[in-house]
Structure formats: structure tokens, C-alpha cells
Design a protein around this nucleic acid. Structure first.
Length: 283
DNA sequence: CCAGGAACCTGTACGC
DNA sequence: TGCGTACAGGTTCCTG
């Protein structure tokens, strides 16, 4: 479920419950997700105060006052939900434990954060905060698509060397970090670029339009997620209301959203993943 | 190094 | 109701 906008939504939802609070108890209910949890993870988390909650690409990073950082990836099916009462105004109540609740944090403010991940493609790790940027999962990531270093000169340079479809190139986290299958499809539709085009064949002007389109589609989705974050309890990274405004993703056979375009959205498979597009509008 | 496919794992939707 | 199949928002690993 989570691409950059959903992870950012989760991060924002966790903040009121976790930031500046102490993990009074960490429950680790199995030895691993995609990989084994780090050695003594529960002990290293228990008693630690969260002093910053950051995001890099699709990773959430919680800096602790123990000089360590907790890294979390939600994989395909990971969720982090907040329950309880951080403000201490009401009785603390939590939902019953669910299947696949693999890690649970009880905070000293009464909040409970539950990490649930049926498919277990998610991951958690811990490392020294000083060396967080050097974590193997982070070092090869490309620039943040909403950051300053992601611009058309950079993207042109990276795409010009790739003999793969633009769809695959934009999914490559080494080129730009945070896009996933949904938002690549949506961005290519907005930029009117066919997902089948070779990355190296995308013209300079189209690359120039692609950069702001990528930024906009992600910003729109973050805004939609934010609007669905009614209160601190809804930190589950659902696609929020943005899923109701997809132009192409999941719309196979439906009519294109471009005014006066009667073409129906196609679904094809590219490197094992579904691509949705309008063959009339996207060239 | 590049490109493409399999693998990881569980749940759900759908056709028969 | 049950069974088999396809598919799912991600990423690494292996092969050529």
C-alpha cells in the first residue's frame, strides 16, 4: 500500500503519539519481517525517547535519545496504527490484538502504536543515528522527488542512459526515491507520456514537464492523505481520499478523464507489474 | 554495469 | 461452500 505520500501520511499521523514520548514497552512478537529484527530490538527500544520522526523515500526514521535510530519500511502491506489517548483526557482503550500485529509500542503518554503486516515484506532495523545515512538500505537511493536536487537537468541525465521503458526507470529508486506503481502511472498520464517509451528517448521538453508533474501528483496525494488524517488515530497510511481521484490506476476499461477523449484506459504488464494508461493521450 | 524475471508472503476477488 | 488462479501499493537477488 505505501508509496511516498502514504508513508509521509503515516509519519505525520505518528508524530502526535510518538514525538517526544518514551517507548515504555516494545513488544516484538516474531523474530523477523523480511529480514531478522536487529539484535535485542525490544530492549534497545524500551525506555528510549523519540526525539525526531523523519522520512527518507519510503522509510520512516525515528531518532531516539539513545543515539540510535529506528528504521521502518512498510513493504506492501504494512500499517502502523495509533490507538489510545496521548493527551490523557480519556480512559486508555486499545483494540484487541489482530493477526499479524508483529510489533507494538506502548508509549508513556498512553498511546499504542501497532505495526501490522500480513505479507511481511516490511522491515525494521536499528543503527547509530550518526551513521543513519550510511545504512545499506538508504545509500543507493536517488534524490527525494520533492527536494531541490530533483530537477530536469538531473532527470534528463539519468534517463538518457537507460534503455528501459520510462515506466520502469521511474520505478527505479536509484533514479528517484519514493515513486511506486500508482504514482508513476498517474504522473505519466499527467505528463502525457506513454509508459512504453524508452527512457532515453524522452525529449528534453517532456522531461521538463515530468518533474513538476511528479511533484504535483505526490503533493496532491499527501494533501489528500492529510485531509483523511482526521485525528491521531488514523495513522494507517490508507490511500486516503486520493484513491478516488486516480486518473488511470485501477481504471482498466473505464473512459479516459481527458475532456472529449472517449478512449478507455488500458492495462498492460511491464516487468511483472500492471501499468495503466490512455493510449490516445499518452504518446 | 544494465535489463528482466523470480522470489519473498498472505489475503482477497473471481470463475467454475 | 470449495478450489484453483490471478493479482496486490515493494525491494532484493539472481541470471544472462
Amino acid at each position: 500500500m505505501p508509496e511516498l505520500p502514504e508513508v509521509e501520511t503515516v509519519r505525520r499521523g505518528l508524530s502526535p503519539a510518538m514525538l517526544n514520548a518514551v517507548i515504555s514497552k516494545a513488544s516484538v512478537n516474531r523474530p523477523d519481517l523480511r529480514w531478522p529484527f536487529p539484535d535485542r530490538m525490544a530492549e534497545r527500544l524500551t525506555g528510549a525517547r523519540v526525539i525526531a520522526l523523519r522520512r527518507r523515500s519510503k522509510y520512516i526514521l525515528a531518532d531516539l535519545d539513545t543515539q540510535e535510530t529506528l528504521l521502518v519500511h512498510l513493504g506492501m502491506s504494512g500499517r502502523m496504527t495509533v490507538s489510545g489517548d496521548p493527551l490523557g483526557q480519556f480512559a486508555h482503550t486499545h483494540p484487541h490484538a489482530q493477526k499479524h500485529d508483529h510489533v507494538v509500542f506502548d508509549m508513556d503518554n498512553g498511546a499504542r502504536i501497532t505495526f501490522n503486516d500480513p505479507r511481511r515484506f516490511g522491515a525494521m532495523d536499528m543503527m547509530s543515528t550518526d551513521a543513519a545515512d550510511a545504512h545499506p538500505l538508504l545509500t543507493k537511493l536517488g534524490p527525494e522527488p520533492l527536494g531541490n536536487s530533483f530537477d530536469d537537468a538531473y532527470l534528463m541525465e539519468r534517463l538518457s542512459k537507460r534503455n528501459t521503458p520510462i515506466k520502469s526507470a521511474l520505478l527505479d529508486q536509484r533514479i528517484v526515491a519514493g515513486l511506486g506503481n500508482i504514482y508513476v502511472c498517474e504522473a505519466l498520464f499527467r505528463a502525457r507520456i506513454s509508459p512504453l517509451r524508452k527512457a532515453r528517448d524522452i525529449g528534453k521538453n517532456q522531461v521538463k514537464s515530468l518533474v513538476p508533474v511528479i511533484r504535483q501528483v505526490l503533493s496532491d496525494a499527501i494533501d489528500a492523505g492529510g485531509s483523511s488524517l482526521k485525528d491521531f488515530r488514523q495513522a494507517d497510511g490508507e490511500l486516503g481520499y486520493f484513491q478516488h481521484s486516480f486518473d488511470v490506476y485501477g481504471r482498466e476499461g473505464d473512459v479516459c478523464h481527458t475532456p472529449d477523449c472517449a478512449t478507455t484506459i488500458e492495462r498492460i504488464t511491464q516487468s511483472g507489474r500492471s501499468t495503466f494508461f490512455c493510449s490516445q493521450c499518452q504518446r
